[in-house]
């Protein structure tokens, strides 16, 4: 066979939060498992492990994905951004700041996923309507807030990033 299969522990190299990163993992391990258990990036949360809660949202080559639905071996050569990699020049980004100011979190467990998803949204669409925000965030479950303050926080961050606030 022209190509050999990877088994046992595999070395994977990727860029994680801007840093060249290398790790060993088994092919079965998800990106979520590797981020949390091998790289110590526990900001990415596990809520369901089957793509239905969004707590494990990360950016993979700039695209929003559920890290529980990505095999870590697939990310060879990729750019991965987790919540730990979302930082502004002066610390918090407008999205993070507006989540705090608008009280858009209660228990805070879903918050990293929302921060990542909202960041991806505002990169793709700087002026989303309420409907578009709700549509984009529908894959991220929050059980505490009823989403009201989350939607408002995203609207506020969007306005700030557009230079309106």
């Amino acid at each position: 066979m022209a190509i050999s299969l990877m088994s046992g522990k595999v070395t994977v190299s990727a860029t994680v939060n801007g840093e060249p990163t290398e790790w060993l993992c088994e092919p079965r391990e998800t990106l979520l498992e590797v981020l949390r258990d091998r790289l110590g990036l526990t900001g990415t949360k596990e809520g369901c492990s089957n793509g239905n809660c969004g707590a494990c949202s990360v950016l993979l080559d700039g695209r929003l994905v559920n890290s529980c639905l990505v095999l870590a071996v697939e990310t060879e050569g990729a750019e991965i951004t987790t919540v730990e990699g979302i930082r502004g020049e002066k610390g918090l980004t407008p999205v993070q700041r507006s989540f705090l100011e608008e009280a858009a979190l209660q228990c805070g467990f879903c918050t990293p996923g929302f921060i990542v998803a909202a960041t991806a949204l505002l990169q793709a669409n700087p002026s989303p309507t309420e409907e578009q925000i709700r549509w984009w965030l529908a894959g991220n479950l929050c059980r505490c807030t009823g989403y009201d303050k989350i939607v408002r926080a995203v609207q506020k961050a969007a306005a700030e990033m557009r230079g309106e606030a």
């Binding site: 949390r36 526990t42 987790t82 730990e84």
Partner: peptide
């Protein structure tokens, strides 16, 4: 006011049970 534990919770630093 902003909650005292807020920054940790929007940056992924807060430590939950499985962390």
């Amino acid at each position: 006011p902003v909650r005292p534990d807020g920054v940790d919770k929007v940056t992924g630093r807060a430590v939950y049970g499985a962390d």
